[in-house]
């Protein structure tokens, strides 16, 4: 493929500029990998949530976003979007086992805690829809998220 066949994507990743050149059909997930910042890639169909990032403040699976659509966008991974209190509670509850799904669900749950500090278990489970975890059975994740919410509101 010649250089002319590539789309140039520039944006902000975790507070720093990034740049990638990818095919016109590539996703944001592909662009981040090309930029040297690969995310956990699962289904590549928007079903598993492992590649979820904060895209202009909204949790979004990077695999369903065309790379060109993310040009100029502010992208944050769990590295920057994670709430420390949530990470601490997930660790304390043993809610991370293999860890493959953790970055994506941490982005989604941090957004949930930031926008809806008063939470109940159904709201947490709703936010976890689209995040597949094959290890934990989700209960520890729900418990940890509610504990984080309690700490944030206390």
């Amino acid at each position: 493929m010649s250089g002319d066949d590539l789309v140039e994507v520039r944006g902000t990743l975790d507070g720093e500029p990034y740049h990638a050149e990818v095919p016109v059909w590539a996703s944001l997930l592909d662009a981040l990998e090309a930029a040297g910042r690969p995310l956990p890639a699962g289904c590549r169909g928007g079903q598993c949530g492992s590649c979820t990032v904060s895209l202009d403040g909204v949790p979004t699976p990077a695999c369903v976003v065309p790379a060109g659509a993310a040009a100029g966008a502010v992208v944050e991974t769990a590295r920057r979007a994670a709430l420390p209190v949530l990470v601490a509670e997930l660790a304390a509850a043993g809610a991370t086992q293999c860890g493959y799904c953790s970055p994506g669900l941490v982005v989604a749950l941090s957004h949930l805690l930031s926008t809806s500090p008063s939470l109940d278990a159904p709201a947490v489970r709703e936010a976890l829809t689209g995040h597949l975890c094959r290890c934990t059975g989700y209960e520890a994740i729900v418990t940890a998220t509610l504990a984080a919410a309690a700490r944030l509101t206390s």
Partner: peptide
């Protein structure tokens, strides 16, 4: 892009 991007990914 939620439908066409997965189709392009595949």
């Amino acid at each position: 892009g939620t439908a066409v991007q997965p189709a392009m990914n595949a």
